[in-house]
Simulated assay, not measured.
Amino acid sequence: MDNKAYYTDDIDIENGNRCLTDRPLYVNCAGVCSFEVDFSGGHEKGREDFYLMYLCRGELSVAFGGRNCAFKSGQLIIFPPKTPCMYKNKPGTHVDYFWLHFTGTKAEALLENARLPLNRPINVSVDERILSAFQQLFAEFMERDFLFHTSIVSKLVDVCTLFGRAAASLLEENRDGVTLSASLRYIDEHYAKPISVKDLANLEHISCGHFRVLFKQKTGMTPTYYITALRLRNACVLLKQTDLTVKEIALSVGFSDQMYFTRVFTKQFGIPPKAFRR
């Protein structure tokens, strides 16, 4: 991995550290650091903007706010403005980390919405989707067309969204050991076939009762309602985009009886399938 640094305003390094209050979000600069030798760095007086670090290899010792913490591979840390922070690698280790500096009136709200706390390491894992999102951000710095500023802000939101989801997923997995990813994937791929709660619970290696509770907590729906809603959404697409009969659509999304399909569809949307198509 090569060291890279990109600045929004050409190579104006001074303006790569500023707090802006005249726009919602703004990326000051971004890059990646790779060190195979012992090193130390940081900002003794803090920065004017938010400072995000994502460690994807090695380990750092980080000092900030009068305390020290170990910052490990697969973790993210975000420092707010005016926060002095210093860091150094664990002796003899190779370190790779991505960094991003951003500002704006909505910067703090973006982090709050993504449930990304400040001033502490956050477990997110080394995720290829996050690494790819940074590479896409860097690509925008090199392209720098007329939509450059809009695009890098969009990429900032993408990165924070990925971090938020990764952190929430790991937190949930650590809490009860079950993410429901296997069962949700199975439903998405086999919704048109008969699916039992027992089969889904077996995929997660838990009891049916425990599965129902966790599923309702995660989706806000019972498993049966979730599957029915998915079938109806796909039925709507087929009604709009194909010339299939109502009976053919009912069968293709998992309803074996056209009358039952019509009754459930009408209850959900307030009109029968044929009226919806018109």
Rank of each mutant, 00 (worst) to 15 (best):
D2G: 12
A5P: 00
Y7C: 04
D9M: 01
I11C: 09
D12S: 10
D12C: 09
N15L: 12
N15M: 14
G16M: 07
C19P: 01
L20I: 03
T21V: 11
R23Q: 15
A30Q: 09
S34A: 08
F35W: 12
E36Q: 02
F39E: 04
G42T: 14
K45Q: 15
G46V: 09
R47Q: 10
M53Y: 12
M53Q: 14
Y54S: 10
L55T: 12
R57Q: 14
E59Y: 03
E59K: 13
L60I: 06
S61P: 15
S61D: 14
V62W: 05
G66Y: 12
K72W: 01
Q75C: 15
Q75N: 08
L76V: 14
I78G: 02
F79N: 08
F79Y: 13
P84G: 12
C85K: 02
K88E: 01
N89D: 15
H94C: 15
D96S: 02
D96Q: 11
H101V: 02
H101W: 03
K106L: 12
A109H: 07
E112R: 01
E112G: 00
E112H: 05
N113R: 10
L116A: 06
N123P: 08
N123W: 07
N123H: 05
S125E: 12
L131P: 00
S132A: 05
A133D: 06
F134S: 02
Q136S: 13
L137I: 15
A139E: 11
A139P: 02
E140G: 00
M142L: 15
M142D: 13
E143G: 00
E143N: 00
D145M: 02
D145S: 15
F146N: 11
F146W: 03
L156D: 00
L156W: 13
V157A: 07
V159P: 03
C160T: 07
T161M: 12
R165S: 03
A168G: 14
A168F: 11
L170G: 05
L171M: 03
R175I: 11
D176F: 14
G177I: 08
T179H: 06
T179E: 09
L180Y: 04
S181D: 10
S181W: 09
S183A: 09
Y186A: 01
I187G: 04
I195D: 09
S196P: 00
V197M: 01
K198F: 02
D199Q: 06
H205G: 02
S207K: 11
C208S: 06
G209I: 07
F211T: 10
R212I: 03
V213K: 14
V213F: 09
L214V: 12
K216D: 09
K216N: 14
K218L: 10
T219L: 08
T219F: 10
G220F: 12
M221F: 15
P223W: 06
I227Q: 05
L230I: 13
Q241A: 04
T242D: 10
D243H: 07
T245A: 10
V246S: 04
K247M: 12
K247H: 10
L251N: 08
G254Q: 08
S256Y: 13
S256K: 11
S256F: 12
Q258A: 11
Q258P: 06
F261A: 03
T262L: 02
T262D: 00
V264R: 08
F265I: 11
F265M: 00
F265V: 04
F269M: 01
P272I: 05
P272W: 01
A275V: 08
A275C: 01
R277C: 04
